[in-house]
């Protein structure tokens, strides 16, 4: 199991790169180059979901160029949470693509912006917003057996 553990600075580098790409998308879309960039980001999110966050281009960059320059990590993390978060990012990127491609520029920008907020929180603060929505999603989508008391 310990072999699968993750240096948390890997996903953080990925979040930095994602933030830059999404910011560029917001500044250039709905022009074709911006939409293409969002499609590229969606493909990168999909790589993280399908192959896992240790087999993405960003993970390779981290291992090859960044990690050798850093001290050993203070702790290792489970790769499942960031992988789940890449799925949340993918969902927003796809909604953004649909928005830009169908002429709903506001929808495209807002969905891209939501993904950007999550990426920035991860890049700057190490927070996994996608992970935290998991329990909220479960709370909202699963019926309660008994009415919950107020307060």
């Amino acid at each position: 199991m310990s072999r699968d553990q993750l240096d948390p600075r890997g996903p953080q580098l990925n979040a930095v790169l994602t933030s830059v790409v999404l910011a560029l998308v917001l500044l250039t879309a709905p022009a074709a180059a911006g939409v293409a960039l969002l499609a590229l980001q969606a493909a990168l999110f999909a790589t993280g979901v399908v192959l896992g966050v240790q087999r993405t281009p960003a993970a390779w960059l981290f291992r090859r160029f960044v990690r050798p320059r850093l001290a050993a990590p203070t702790h290792l993390e489970d790769p499942a949470p960031p992988r789940f978060a890449q799925g949340v990012g993918l969902a927003f990127a796809l909604v953004g693509l649909v928005g830009y491609l169908s002429g709903l520029t506001v929808l495209g920008a807002v969905a891209t912006g939501a993904a950007l907020v999550a990426a920035l929180l991860n890049a700057v603060f190490g927070l996994c917003l996608g992970c935290e929505t998991y329990l909220l999603g479960k709370r909202l989508t699963t019926r309660d057996r008994a009415p919950a008391p107020v307060g």
């Binding site: 917001l26 250039t28 879309a29 520029t105 912006g113």
Partner: peptide, 8 residues
């Protein structure tokens, strides 16, 4: 897009 970037 620039407004959304700033807000984000």
């Amino acid at each position: 897009g620039a407004w959304v970037l700033l807000a984000s």
